[in-house]
Amino acid sequence: MRAELAELWRFRELLGAMVERELRIRYKNSVLGFFWSFLNPLVTVLVMWFVFRTLLRNETDNYSAYVLSAYIPFMFFNLAVLDSAQSVLVSLPIVKKVYFPREILPLASVLANFVHLLLAFLVFFLYLLVVWAVTGFQVTPFTWRIVALPILLVVTFALALGVSFLVSALNVFYEDVKYVMSVVLYLAFFLTPIMYFSENVYYAFSGKGWWGEVVYTLYHLNPVAMLATAYKKALVSPGPIDISGIGKVPPVPFEWGYFAVACVVSFGLLVGGYAVFNRLKWRFVERP
């Protein structure tokens, strides 16, 4: 693996050019260009805010900020995996003709989406400032916990890249992988505390006996779900959370144990995914 990393480093400028190319191609024929990366999360949150505040009458403070803080990284994960699933297959004509480290392809897809993630967070913070100003600087929308953001970004990146290595390599041989992934990611959206809170999960399963504990544990073993909670806790100042049927409850303390598991799983997937990719990459050109 060390030799492979050295080779990758040798081609870093090509990687940079590929990321730039991805960003450029995506917006080449669109009028609004880069604004699309902001428009999508903003519109989504507006709709969710409408549904939960107005239709379901959820009274949680900063609801839209909570949703946005987890939705942005989830969308990054989603798009990074789906884009890179295609990356090797789409470039197969080039891959068959010239040599370059093949891992550049999924890596470029993930990096390009990571750029969008950073831009989206920029908009997110502007949004928080606007919320702050609108409330007359009464409710501070964030706390010192925000310093954890870089760590969360690194873990999220590792997880997305690891999964992307696996998916992009397997998708060359089995094109079903891409379809399976899009279904899995769609379902993962609902099994991740984005529209709701980890507190919902906590109160739904506490006091339900052993099976409640099992479901609660399984839910939190999903690194994507755990990261979503971590983003919410880190980026939005904690306040009472409105749970239907129970009322406003204080926030549940952060599950450090499960978060550690999520970190280990993320980096494990990165190393394992890269190993699998390197094993399969020479067979890309010979796929039956």
């Binding site: 090509l14 190319r21 080039i94």
Partner: peptide, 26 residues
């Protein structure tokens, strides 16, 4: 390697962008 016509070019990019890109691949 000079293999086949236009192998390694990306059809949507301009000639100039492809030169940079291919040059770096090589």
């Amino acid at each position: 390697p000079l293999l086949e016509l236009g192998a390694g070019f990306h059809p949507d990019l301009t000639g100039l962008e492809n030169i940079l890109f291919n040059g770096m691949i090589l």
